[in-house]
């Protein structure tokens, strides 16, 4: 569970380039919620995820996760609770390490690391079995370095790594946006599968309204750092692409008329 209250995040605060990226976001994510987050460029979707993960320090507000106030926790400490998959497939895996080393690194997420061998022989069977679920044949390539894999394979591996130990919260930041349509579909199906199987609390940012409607039980639309739409369950089920588009045009139209007023 995540409780965000009145989160404010500026970029370049105090300079001429000051941007208010998140404008007082308050949000309650229930256990097991699978939220898809949409919004135009610069709406604050990725910033919101980065603030939850701790990559960005926030200007004010508070973030609670799993009953703990994590507002001032550094990013690495939040990793105990939070797992992530990034838009850039290269960010989620260590290119020079082998597949099994990557999995072993992820299998220790949020735990102390010592002088025991990184890859334990007793874990290899488990890694193989988990890789088999991906259906990419990676289970026979444990010793290949991750740098040899394609973007889609690396993203699938990252997805597996993020959920190898069950995270309290899974953050997906446009994780299929850099993939070709077929691979994107596969990784998305994998996402659906894993989230359902492990009953993960998930926030997924996407540019594709179709994906936002297909997946998850709750949908949020962000605009200029504010949540302008938040629907769940049955209500979300009734939503269609045209409804979302209408909402998009509604807020953008507002902007246009504001600009007109300025110019007049």
């Amino acid at each position: 569970m995540i409780t965000i209250s009145n989160l404010i995040k500026y970029f370049h605060k105090g300079s001429v380039n000051e941007i208010l990226a998140l404008d007082g976001i308050s949000l309650e994510v229930k256990d097991g919620d699978f939220i898809t987050v949409i919004g135009s460029n610069g709406a604050g979707k990725s910033t919101l995820l980065n603030c939850i993960a701790g990559t960005y320090a926030i200007d004010s507000g508070s973030i609670k996760a799993s009953g703990q106030d994590i507002t001032v926790w550094p990013e690495y400490k939040r990793a105990k609770l939070i797992a992530r998959v990034f838009q850039d497939p290269l960010l989620g895996t260590c290119a020079s390490a082998s597949i099994e080393q990557n999995l072993a690194l992820a299998y220790k997420r949020g735990q102390k690391r010592g002088l025991a061998f990184g890859v334990k022989s007793r874990d290899r069977g488990f890694f193989r079995q988990e890789l088999k679920q991906l259906g990419l044949g990676l289970e026979d390539r444990l010793l290949d370095t991750a740098g040899l894999l394609s973007g889609g394979q690396r993203q699938a591996l990252t997805m597996l790594m993020a959920t190898l130990i069950r995270p309290d919260i899974l953050l997906l930041d446009e994780h299929v946006a850099a993939l070709d349509p077929k691979t994107a579909h596969q990784v998305l199906e994998l996402t659906r599968e894993i989230v359902k199987q492990k009953k993960l609390t998930t926030l997924m940012v996407t540019h594709q309204m179709k994906h936002a409607l297909q997946l998850g039980n709750r949908l949020m639309m962000l605009h200029r750092g504010k949540i302008i739409l938040d629907v769940r369950d049955e209500e979300k089920g009734k939503l269609e692409v045209k409804d979302l588009l209408a909402k998009f045009y509604e807020v953008q139209g507002e902007e246009l008329s504001n600009d007109k007023m300025l110019l007049a």
């Binding site: 990013e75 690495y76 990793a79 960010l91 290119a95």
Partner: peptide, 10 residues
């Protein structure tokens, strides 16, 4: 190699 990756592994 990838400080973002290892940070998000805690």
């Amino acid at each position: 190699d990838n400080s973002q990756m290892i940070t998000s592994q805690g």
